[in-house]
Each structure stands twice: as structure tokens, then as C-alpha cells.
Design a protein around this nucleic acid. Structure first.
Length: 248
DNA sequence: AACTTCGTCAACCGCGAGACC
DNA sequence: AGGTCTCGCGGTTGACGAAGT
């Protein structure tokens, strides 16, 4: 075949799904000539498929020794073990599983075991859960803050009353002595004692550090990582129209 | 019932290695 | 020695049916 006819042939390569007729032509060819010399398939059979495409079709679909049907649990075990040993060497793994192709194993692995990005639906659910959880945390947090403030006010009032009573008593004793400064250190110590005892850590509220009960604490450490990744996940969706969906 | 999303799998693409000239 | 061809491999894409909304 000369260069021009070869070029014309190449320009006419068919792509896409194989027809039953093409399958039969290829099968007949392999039965007559054996596997190999894939580039001569087109010349000898009239198939308008590249040698590469013919080989792939034969290896992955037409070979008579292929197993059909789902991967069995035993095969799955072998795949897992071999992948742990060999990594993504699908052809090597396939050689240990008679009747299975590298393509089949590769697809199976990607579908069942590869740690995939959560689906859109799963991501939406995660986001919704996260938002609800965050709302609830904020609500509890603000409630506890209000409670703490009330307690602090009561303590301050009590302290003030005690202080006034003490002052009055002193004034009665020393009618002309000046009033004493309130004991700020004692007040602060009392507030601190009120605020500690949660184990939830310190939050800033109106410019002042306030301890937060454990149950209401905002996430940190490991949780923060989770939320951080969630936010990235949210950002990823929020930046686009959600239709791009880019697979991994 | 119509539309959307997901899972599966066949097929394609690009690249590297080895054979051959 | 180096250029070309062929084959094989791993990664990726796209079609399509099933499941979900």
C-alpha cells in the first residue's frame, strides 16, 4: 500500500463503539492470523479501525478466555493485595487474575476503592449538616454567654453590696475616713473562678476574653481541619455555577 | 413524568520501551 | 547510531442506564 492510500485510510479511521460486524471481522482475523500485527488488520479485513483500537477491542472484549460478570469477592481480595504490593500496575495485576483485563481491574479499582471526592449530593448534605451544626453551636454559645454575664452581674452586685456594707460599717467606726477603692483583683479573681470550670477554652466577646463551656466551644485542632476542608469544599462550589463539576 | 445526578464500563489518548531497518 | 514502527501500559473521557429528586 502506498503512502497516499495509507493516508486516506488513516483519515477514514472509525472511532467509537464497535458494531457486531466489526467484531466479527476482527475475530475472524485473529482466528486466521493470530494476535499481533494489529496494524495489518485494517489492510487485510477492510476494517476502518486503527491497529491500536483493534488490539484494545480484542484484548478487552473479544478474547474468548475473558470472564464475564462481576468481580467476585475472592478476586477483589486478590486485587486489593496485589495493588498494595504493586500499585497501579494494572496489567501485572490482571496477569494474576485469569480472564480479567487490566482495563476491567482499573475501572473496578477506581469505582470501588479510590478515595473519591464526595459526590455533589453528598457534598450538599455535608454542607447542610455543617451549617445546621454551626447555627446550633452559635446559639448555645450565645446562651452560655448571656448566662455568664448574668452571673457576673449578680456577683458584682453582691460584691458591691458587701463593699457598701463594709464601707458603711467603717464610716460608722471612723466617721471622717475616706472611702476605700474597690478590690479589683478580688473581683477579677471571682470572675475568673466563674468563667473557668468549662474546659471549653477562651473566646473573645466585646473585646474581652470569655471562657466558653466545652459543649459550646468553637471547633479547633482536628475539627478545624474538617471545617476548613468543608469550607474549601463550599468555596469550590460557590465560585462557579456548580455545573463544571470537574472530576477530581 | 421529567429532569438531574451518579456509577459503570468501553474506548481513546499520550507516552515510553523495544524491535527493526 | 539513530530514525521509524509497533506494541503495551496507565490515565482519562464520554456514553448510557439506573437511581434519585
Amino acid at each position: 500500500m502506498d503512502a497516499i492510500s495509507s493516508l486516506m485510510l488513516q483519515e477514514g479511521w472509525r472511532k467509537g463503539p464497535w458494531t457486531a460486524l466489526e467484531d466479527r471481522l476482527l475475530t475472524d482475523y485473529v482466528q486466521q492470523h493470530g494476535e499481533g500485527s494489529w496494524n495489518s488488520v485494517a489492510k487485510l479485513t477492510g476494517l476502518r479501525r486503527s491497529g491500536k483500537s483493534c488490539r484494545l477491542r480484542w484484548v478487552n472484549y473479544l478474547r474468548p478466555d475473558l470472564k464475564r460478570g462481576k468481580i467476585t469477592p475472592d478476586e477483589e481480595t486478590v486485587i486489593l493485595q496485589l495493588h498494595a504490593m504493586l500499585g497501579n500496575r494494572w496489567s501485572a495485576i490482571a496477569r494474576c487474575l485469569p480472564g480479567r483485563t487490566d482495563n476491567e481491574i482499573k475501572n473496578y479499582w477506581r469505582t470501588h476503592f479510590k478515595k473519591a471526592r464526595p459526590s455533589r449530593r453528598a457534598r450538599a448534605q455535608l454542607l447542610h449538616q455543617y451549617q445546621l451544626q454551626q447555627q446550633e453551636q452559635r446559639r448555645q454559645y450565645m446562651q452560655s454567654l448571656q448566662l455568664l454575664q448574668q452571673q457576673n452581674q449578680q456577683q458584682l452586685q453582691l460584691q458591691e453590696q458587701q463593699s457598701q456594707q463594709l464601707t458603711m460599717a467603717k464610716q460608722q467606726q471612723q466617721q471622717l475616713s475616706p472611702p476605700e477603692e474597690p478590690d479589683h483583683q478580688a473581683v477579677m479573681a471571682m470572675m475568673n473562678s466563674l468563667q473557668s470550670g468549662g474546659g471549653g477554652g477562651t473566646e473573645w466577646y466585646c473585646g474581652s476574653p470569655v471562657s466558653v463551656p466545652e459543649c459550646c466551644a468553637l471547633p479547633d485542632d482536628d475539627d478545624a481541619l474538617l471545617w476548613d476542608s468543608l469550607w474549601r469544599l463550599v468555596d469550590g462550589d460557590g465560585c462557579g455555577d456548580g455545573s463544571s463539576g470537574g472530576d477530581y
